[in-house]
Structures are given as structure tokens and as C-alpha cells.
Design a protein around this nucleic acid. Structure first.
Lengths: 172, 172
DNA sequence: TTATCGTGGATACTTTTTATCCGCAATAGG
DNA sequence: CCTATTGCGGATAAAAAGTATCCACGATAA
């Protein structure tokens, strides 16, 4: 069981985007620089977040990414599912049918108990992730993190964020 | 997030071994045949279970595998950890340090809040798996499964299990 | 002595993950 | 209109992990 590195990148980027002003955006290249990630690959993950309607993207100069909704309504589960996919970690291959003893399919209508147990565990996993909001991550970072690194993050965001022309209803 | 196919194989094999008599053993080749798996690869997983002291192995003719302890004291978590490894699914790469803004290491003594949240979710996952005993899986299979496939499984085990010479204290 | 079985290493094949590149569409600013 | 910047998508490739096979070896029951 392993999560791709994109998950960590996606969560950090989303947390960073949570502190841009109003409807301003931040370019993907700036986010990549912020965490020392390869820009071209990070864009893939940002794109997945956009497809999942967690982020919004703006093309053109002064374009970039911003959160599609307030950080209070984005959970870690949203991000993990967007990047890793929605399929469960355990996939039942029904290998019990593959044995030498041939029994017709009617003997296997009941779902496999092993599968049920594994899926139940994953529901617990997802439920725990769903309880953590992106705003919690940001608040924790602001409260528990070192003031120097927090200030540096804010300065970096302030330096790279770009205001948009079109008016927006949610002023943060 | 994805689990290897070995997990499914390992659980099915362990459940099968739960119904061998006394201290009898069952060859790995028979287990592979039972689920239509490649024998040489399944042995790797059985070996991992042996290394984790979930199974015991006996060499020589009439040798094979058996549970190292009663099925009531083997959980799905034991098996999953033995096959997939004990490392958490999420590994914090501390990418927040990789940015262009250089801050000395003293600014990052606090563990990352993202990491904490992800590990907490995985603890919930593991706790759910730890609650399911191998004996539960077997009992569910006997009670809920189709009588035909259950009978076929029992017959297969009875046909391939091999009694051991050395006396054992735990008669199932 | 022989045949069967598990162990461990070496090796190869396949799939997934990670990463890069390029052309395209969108668009802000001159 | 023109140009520069940015996101989007596909093609491609390199790296890593997962899957699978084989063989030499030690153990052991008959």
C-alpha cells in the first residue's frame, strides 16, 4: 500500500492557494518553485484537482490557479481521491473461482467476505480523511508551525499571486 | 493507493490453512492450485507470512505450511502488514523545505500537520483491519457462502493436507 | 538413496509512476 | 492585431515497483 508523491504536492499546493487574496490566482510554475517540484509534472496533479472541481484555473497572462470553493469546504479526502483515483485500494479478484474445482457461477453470488472487510477498513480510512478540512491544515500551520517558515510562505504567496479583472462574490 | 494482489492471495491461503486438521500441513503448490495462482510467485508471499510468524513451514516430503497460531489470534492487519510492509502509505517528503526561501532546519522541528492527519487516517484503517480475525473470515465463509463452494474447499483441503509425525500441543 | 518440499537469489517481464516536451487554445496588455 | 504568458492535452520516455519464472541448495520422510 503506497500513496503517490502527488498527494503530498497536491495538499501543499491547495493549502498554499488557500491564502491567496480574494479571487486572485497563482501560476502553477510558482507553486512548483515553492516546493522545489518539477513544474511540468506538478501541472498534471493540479489538473486533476481542477478536473475534480477543487481548483479553478485561469488561462493567459496573470492566469493561474485558485481554490474553487472556500478551504472550509475542501477535505483531505477530496484531494486524495482527486489525485489517487476513486477506486478502492483492495480489489477482489475473486480468485476463489479460479481453482481446479469447477462450480457454476451461482455459487458465488454472495460477495466475498474478505472483500467486505477490506472495503470496510477503507471506509474508515476515508472517513478519517473526510474529517480534516483544508482550513484545518492551514490553521494548524499558522498556529503550530515556526513563525519564520509561515511568514516566508505568506511572503511567497503575496509575491506571486495575481489579481483578476472579473469581479468575484467571495472576498475570501 | 493500491494494494498488491498478494494480499488477496495471502488472506485466502491463510483462511484455507485455518481448516487443516491439527498440526497437518499443506504444500504451497496445492494452495497455488487451489486459487489458480502462479506457484513460484505465491511462495514469495507465503514466505513473507512465514517470516512474520503467521505461518509455519515444514520442509521435506509431507511438508508444507500451517498456521503458526490459532485463527482467532490472526488478524487481517497481521496479514496485510506482512505482505505489504509496515511502512505507512503516506510518507512525508518535507517538500515545504525544498522551496527557494532558505530557512535553517530549526524552523521545521514540528512535524508536518499534513503528515499527522494522513497517519491518523491510516491508523483508523489499520484499527479496522485489526478487528477482523481470520476466524471471522472462515466463519463467515462457512455461514454465508454457498454450501457447494464451501464443501469443495473442505474437500480440497482434506485431499491435500498431510499429517506430521511430531506431536503438537494445539489440536486446532 | 531418492523424491518432495521450502528457501533464497538471480533474472526477466509487465505495469505503474514519475518526468519531460511540444503544439494548441485562452487571454491580458500594448 | 500582435505578443507574451499561462493552462490543457497528448505523445513520449525514463525510473521504479510489482509480477513471474527459474535454479541451486538444505531439509527430511520413506
Amino acid at each position: 500500500m503506497k500513496l503517490g508523491e502527488g498527494v503530498e504536492a497536491a495538499i501543499h499546493c491547495a493549502a498554499t492557494l488557500a491564502s491567496v487574496d480574494g479571487n486572485s490566482t497563482m501560476p502553477g510554475a510558482a507553486l512548483a518553485e515553492c516546493f522545489g517540484l518539477s513544474p511540468s509534472y506538478l501541472l498534471k496533479h493540479l489538473n486533476q484537482l481542477t478536473a475534480a472541481r477543487i481548483l479553478e484555473s485561469v488561462s493567459g497572462p496573470a492566469g493561474g490557479y485558485r481554490l474553487a470553493r472556500p478551504a472550509e469546504r475542501i477535505t483531505l479526502l477530496d484531494i486524495v481521491l482527486a489525485v489517487e483515483g476513486r477506486e478502492p485500494a483492495f480489489r477482489c479478484g475473486e480468485i476463489r473461482r479460479n481453482g481446479p474445482v469447477k462450480i457454476d457461477a451461482s455459487a458465488y453470488v454472495k460477495p466475498c467476505g474478505i472483500n467486505a472487510a477490506m472495503l470496510k477498513a477503507e471506509r474508515a480510512y476515508r472517513a478519517a480523511l473526510a474529517e480534516v478540512k483544508l482550513s484545518d491544515i492551514v490553521a494548524d500551520y499558522a498556529a503550530e508551525g515556526d513563525p519564520r517558515s509561515f511568514a516566508a510562505s505568506c511572503a511567497f504567496v503575496a509575491r506571486h499571486q495575481r489579481p483578476q479583472k472579473t469581479a468575484s462574490t467571495n472576498q475570501n
